[in-house]
Structure formats: structure tokens, C-alpha cells
């Protein structure tokens, strides 16, 4: 398994990975995320996934950088388009397919679907749909670690430019700075909140300017440039770990899909598709690998086959598993059985 192998390799390596090794590792997670999500889209189109499919196409470079620099005791609060980052953080592929396909064996057991999955006990928070809400939850998790005397941890919370316009986001950013927790907030401006373009989302010159207002240190980057993502987000993680104030990174990309797969994104203008940030980060990364001859084409093809095999295995396993059943479900929303309110 790629995931196991790479996590092991990483944790055994005391020295930081060489830049091109990390670059290639990141590319493989991006490739795996893209391969998986393309497959999920086909399953959805074929009527085999109920609910929705929300993919991170075009955002993999930013996302992978979010997951790649975190350690096991760090807190990760991924959002809707963070398949690459979740995988790099250590979320098994089978969790994704089980959640999308509604297996009872998945982390959400059919009780919640798609991108709402998480493993709170393994420090991967389970997002709710109400945007901005997970920032303060990440802050609280970091405060708990501080209260309990842990050292060296950080938290990374993902958001989009849409979520940045909520009151919850504002409160979360402010309280993070007040509490001086080691937090990195990575905001991906994909230029559309569902169908609404930037000019109807905010009126400030540049979203990163908000950092100073919150008491954060702010950085911008081109989210289609993997090297820049690794550099800027990696450095923000380092600064947070070193005790600097909370960090805000704003990445610019174009969402290369609909909001979800039910959405044809016909509102995305041809003009914006010609912008530099509209490039496909996966293609750009692959081109860089080819241009710099980091690996040969056979290796690349092998990686592709390996990603496809992993995805196929995760899907076929989840497809064989039993779905939840209404009459066998444990319909209990609290853990304290003696306090369950009974209508009988």
C-alpha cells in the first residue's frame, strides 16, 4: 500500500525529505486523490452513490501541502475539497469509499456521508456543513493539548474564500489569536462560492490583508504551483510549531469542477478559465516532473497504475459491505444510556 509505505518511510526518516522527494511524494498523493475522485464521480453518475460527490479537482496541490507537514499528534480540520490532504495526513482510502458508499463499517456508519467524515480520536476532525465552525473547534483542541501539557503540536484548519465570509470564521480567527494557539489556517480562494463569484463575496483588495486585522501572520500563494504550496504552507507550519502567532495562508486557484457533481458549473466564465490560477495543478506538477526529469515516464505510468489499483480495491471492498438498516440501527444520539429520553 502506498499510504502505509510512505507513512512508514516518512516517520523513519529523521532528516527532512529532500525537496524533490517531498515534491514527488506530494504528487503521488495528488494523483491518488484525483484518481479516486474521478472514480467517485463515475459511480455517482452511474447512480451508485447517494447524496452528493464533492471533489477537490484543481485544489490538490494546496490540499496535499496541508496534510503533508502534519504529525500524528497535530490536529487537522480538513474541509470539503481536501481529499489529497486527508490522504497525506493518514486517512485510509477505505474510509472514503465506505463513507461515500454507505458501508456500515465506515467511520460514519451511514449516519453521515461524503466529505463530513472524520476521525476525531485520530486528530482528523469531522467537518460540519456550516462553514467557519471548525476553526474554533480546532482552537479548542489545541487548548486542550496545551492544558494537558503536550508540546510540539500544531493545528491546521482548512477553509475556502466562501467560508471566510461567515461570522463563525471571524469569531474563530479572532479567538485563535486571543488564545495564541499554534494554528495554521489555509484558505483556498477557488473563486466561486457555489456559483457566486468573488466580487459578490467580498470587497477587500486581497483576502490575506485580513491576517493583520486578526493578529495572524499572512501569506499568499499560487495554488497551482506545488513547490510554492509546499514551501509556503510548510513554512507556516514550521512557524506555528516554533511559537509564532497563528498563520493565515491564502491560496489562489480555480475550482475545476462544479460545487458538487450535480452542478455543471456553467456559470464559470471563459475569461476566468484563462487566468494563470485556472491551471490544473496536477498537470502542472506532472509537467515539472517530466521537464526536470525527476522520474522517468515508466515510473510515472507505474504510479498511475498503482493509484488505480488502490482505488479499485477500496471501492470493491466497500461495495461488498452491508449498508446500515433502519430497523437494526441504534437510534440513540447520546452516549449516556441512562439519560436517553424515551417516548415509550
Amino acid at each position: 500500500m502506498l499510504q502505509t509505505a510512505q507513512r512508514t518511510a516518512k516517520s523513519k526518516t529523521k532528516k527532512p525529505a529532500l525537496p524533490h522527494e517531498r515534491f514527488l511524494e506530494a504528487f503521488r498523493w495528488m494523483l491518488l486523490a484525483r484518481t479516486l475522485e474521478e472514480k467517485l464521480v463515475s459511480l455517482y453518475r452511474g447512480g451508485l452513490i447517494t447524496g452528493g460527490v464533492y471533489i477537490g479537482k484543481g485544489q490538490e496541490a494546496v490540499s496535499v501541502a496541508c496534510g503533508l507537514f502534519l504529525q500524528k499528534n497535530d490536529i487537522f480540520a480538513p474541509l470539503i475539497r481536501d481529499q489529497a490532504g486527508r490522504a497525506a495526513f493518514g486517512e485510509p482510502l477505505i474510509d472514503v469509499t465506505r463513507t461515500y458508499l454507505g458501508s456500515r463499517q465506515g467511520p460514519m456508519r451511514g449516519r453521515d456521508g461524503n466529505i463530513h467524515r472524520g476521525h476525531p480520536r485520530k486528530n482528523e476532525l469531522a467537518m460540519i456543513s456550516h462553514l467557519g465552525a471548525m476553526i474554533s473547534v480546532t482552537v479548542g483542541a489545541l487548548m486542550a493539548k496545551r492544558f494537558r501539557g503536550e508540546k510540539g503540536f500544531i493545528g491546521l484548519s482548512c477553509i475556502g474564500e466562501g467560508g471566510m465570509q461567515t461570522g463563525s470564521f471571524h469569531e474563530g480567527m479572532n479567538i485563535a489569536a486571543v488564545e495564541q494557539v499554534p494554528l495554521v489556517v489555509v484558505a483556498t480562494n477557488n473563486h466561486y462560492a457555489y456559483s457566486t463569484p468573488n466580487e459578490r463575496e467580498f470587497a477587500c483588495h486581497d483576502l490575506v490583508d485580513r491576517a493583520i486585522g486578526y493578529g495572524f501572520e499572512g501569506y499568499s500563494l499560487d495554488g497551482t504551483d506545488l513547490a510554492a504550496c509546499l514551501d509556503v504552507i510548510g513554512s507556516a507550519v514550521k512557524r506555528a510549531r516554533a511559537g509564532r502567532p497563528p498563520q493565515l495562508v491564502v491560496a489562489s486557484v480555480l475550482r475545476l469542477s462544479g460545487h458538487g457533481e450535480h452542478d455543471d458549473a456553467s456559470y464559470v466564465t471563459d475569461e476566468i478559465k484563462r487566468e494563470p490560477f485556472a491551471r490544473d495543478c496536477l498537470k502542472v506538477t506532472e509537467q515539472t516532473i517530466v521537464d526536470l526529469k525527476l522520474v522517468d515516464s515508466e515510473t510515472l505510468a507505474g504510479w498511475r497504475r498503482h493509484a488505480a489499483a488502490q482505488v479499485d480495491e477500496a471501492i470493491s471492498t466497500a461495495q461488498k459491505e452491508a449498508p446500515p438498516e433502519g430497523d437494526k440501527e441504534d437510534w440513540c444520539a447520546i452516549s449516556t444510556r441512562s439519560l436517553v429520553d424515551s417516548l415509550e
Partner: peptide, 23 residues
């Protein structure tokens, strides 16, 4: 003391509770 941020007060408490505290 917290800022006047009821949403973030509860969000923070949720995160802390998830990681072992009793806020």
C-alpha cells in the same frame, strides 16, 4: 474571559472536550 463570540466560545469548548477537557 472570552471575546463576545458565543459561536467561538462553544466551538472552542467542543474542540477542547473532544480532546479530554470538561469545559
Amino acid at each position: 474571559n472570552t471575546p463576545i463570540s458565543e459561536d467561538a466560545m462553544v466551538g472552542t469548548a467542543i474542540g477542547a472536550a473532544m480532546h479530554g477537557m470538561r469545559p
